[in-house]
Design a protein around this nucleic acid. Structure first.
Lengths: 191, 191
DNA sequence: CGCGGGTTTGATGATGCTCAAGCCCGGTGG
DNA sequence: CCACCGGGCTTGAGCATCATCAAACCCGCG
């Protein structure tokens, strides 16, 4: 069932019933357990993933083995490693399910053909990427303008539910500091 | 003359001569003096800009008046504020020429019509955005995995010419630290 | 019950900021 | 042609933020 994807697409462009059916041939549903990986460092990324329910993240490891989360993707977000996808090169990142997650898989292979047949989809993905670019700019702006503690406060007030869903160490690594420091922030906020 | 843009487009998709001519009607050349602005905080962004020669940057100001550079765009890069463009909302950013710069202006208005007539352009911009998404991920990875000094060393070794072209305070604000600190790094590297 | 991953707590210290002063150098006006 | 700006770069002292390391703790799960 790809109804959630069709609903999301409809926010940006309109497809005919025939076009929607065409799309169906290119998209495969897949379920993931908590902590399951879609991609590991060194592998070549061959698909983009649409989150129907649950949550994915992109992270990488430093030489010392420390995790850093680059991105979370919740319902209605697409996630992939574009650098690896484009260049057919080994990825520097991991793609992982944060919790039990239901995704739709769109393989890169054959995608150009699909877009040739359904040009509205090419527009849809352009708009999705545009939204992603805006989000990335906003992300860097936050990293640069706020202190670690202020970033946490803002994030927690914007997405209180999400803070509950995600392990603290992932959140810390997303916000750009250590789990120990996050713990100290929370202690200060508690009193 | 939009030959440089056509050359760049040809790297990704192929246009017929008629399509290239169509594009010409939508693109306006514009020259900018050093430090001239294309967009200021609070204004609504209505176009995307292609750098033919020179250099643009996106920056913003904190409440204390400190500048932070989010992005540089040199030859063959597109730059805009997608958040403002999409939502027709006041921008949080400034777009500015770092040096005398020659840009091509593609107004948002009428763009959908253009893409309707030349679907290959929609693909081109999707691919440009994909490349931008990859660059944004890489950027955050660098911010998270390297110290300030290491970021400067890496940047200087990758783009030695660019370090010459740009004022140090802009570079510092792009790399995520203060001009004073950059000065101290350089002093240490000198000896 | 015990194990183990995740979180907490505390001591110590490095990284990079703030503030303030001086300096270098290109541009402008007298 | 020189004097004087003034913006940008440099230098230094003191300090805040946040990392590191290590130990204890908590709690769900086998």
């Amino acid at each position: 069932m790809l109804a959630p994807l069709l609903a999301h697409i409809a926010r940006y462009v309109s497809l005919t019933a025939a076009e929607a059916e065409l799309l169906e041939a290119y998209v495969v549903p897949h379920t993931l357990e908590r902590r399951a990986h879609l991609l590991r460092e060194g592998e070549v990324c061959t698909a983009t993933y649409f989150v129907v329910s649950g949550c994915l993240r992109t992270y990488f490891l430093t030489e010392k083995g420390v995790e850093h989360t680059l991105q979370f993707a919740i319902e209605n977000w697409w996630l992939t490693d574009y650098a690896s996808l484009d260049a057919h090169a080994p990825s520097a990142f991991f793609l992982q399910a944060v919790e039990p997650t239901w995704v739709l898989v769109l393989e890169q292979r054959g995608q150009e053909e699909l877009f040739g047949r359904v040009p509205q989809l090419e527009r849809y993905f352009r708009l999705v990427l545009q939204r992603g670019a805006a989000a990335a700019q906003h992300r860097v702006k936050l990293l640069y303008s706020l202190s670690g503690e202020a970033r946490y406060r803002q994030f927690a007030s914007l997405f209180p539910a999400f803070v509950q869903r995600v392990p603290q160490y992932m959140l810390a690594s997303y916000l750009g500091f250590t789990p120990e420091f996050l713990s100290k922030i929370r202690a200060r906020m508690g009193e």
